[in-house]
Amino acid sequence: MKKNVWRLCILAVLVSVAFITVYPLIYIFLASFKSNIEILTNSSSIFPQELTFENYISVCRSNDFNIFRMLWNSIYYTLISVAIAITISSMAGYAFARGEFPFKKTIFAMFTALMFITTGGLDIYPKFKILTALHLNRSLGALLFLKLFGVPIVNIYLVRGFVQSLPIELDEAAQIDGCSFIGAFFKIIMPLLAPILATIGILSFQASWNDYIMPTIFTATQPKQYTLIVGLMSLKNSGSAAANWNLILAGTVITLLPVLVAYGFGNRYFVSGLAAGAIKG
């Protein structure tokens, strides 16, 4: 009897915290079906008095808020970011796990040390200078170019650990059969990395889809290159924010959906990324 009461109390706490957790999302989702007047006047009720798809239609038609272009920008920015993250970290992780080369330990230590450096952000200016010298204008493309030269140390750690757990006979046999060191990576190791690359892929998908500050900096002068998040925030910061809540909320729901769907299906990959966060510190 006492045990049941205890269990009921636990359940009550868990349910109420879960309710508080999902409440803001449910409220925003349902509010995106309210008319703009109702968003401002009927905010005490989470359900719309009159369900309307008007907001989604006007988001699709709006000229100032070109959702299809922003959606496309977000998609290609995210996909290329994921491809870069997977390629760079798997190649480097393999090299640090199986390669023998001078300064290996030093380079790995340098890369790791970088993890503990948080600059105030002003180091963006010399990066701009280098990009300008390479004839690259500030744009999403230039940002992706910069990502190509990033040091994804947490992901390198993940891949290195994974490769070290694979039997070394695998790639030795391949190399005896005449495969080069790099050839053994592409033919033997890379296919085996699928589970860890799925984790890295989904984490970098989430990070780049959600990215706000860097895309804003790189598209500051070019509204045509705005990603969804950048576009939403610029609409929110514009003077007419109050008049545009319907557009902002519908845009928010559209921006949230891909990540939420991915979380629904790939729950465990998101959570296994926690280990990565723990390494990163």
């Binding site: 957790t21 999302l25 989430q206 959600n210 998040i229 939403l232 925030m233 990540v259 939420l260």
Partner: peptide, 9 residues
């Protein structure tokens, strides 16, 4: 769930 959402959003 909230940890996977963009902090800007």
């Amino acid at each position: 769930l909230p940890s996977v959402i963009s902090t800007a959003i």
